[in-house]
Amino acid sequence: MIITHTRQDALALVRIEGRLDAAAAPAAEKQLTDLFAAGARAVALDGSALEYISSAGLRVLLSLTKKIKAAGGRIALGGLQPQVKEIIEIAGFSSIMPVFASAEEARRVCAG
């Protein structure tokens, strides 16, 4: 799993590549927590290269969403591959963060 991001003030476009599972979750959690600590309050998650997500990965996204929302920020997810989108839908994640067809739409919403 590789997480890269680009920043523009409080806006961060975060790209997650590979598998977000129990093996990757601790590192992902740390990277995303560091990003939040560094002031990112509008986070657009680009899931176009995310190949798999498990319950451990869902918890990482949940934890980040909780932090961002508690700080009055915005978070959105976009560009998911079908197999990841299926899990996100089963877990009802669209009830806690908006999910868009493309990462660009997620970025636009977060940019405000």
Binding site: D21, A22, Y52, I53, S54, S55, A56, R59, I87, I90
Partner: peptide, 11 residues
């Protein structure tokens, strides 16, 4: 066990 990262599940 999931929260302790000993097991992982998907759908």
């Amino acid at each position: 066990l999931c929260l302790l990262n000993r097991v992982d599940v998907d759908a």
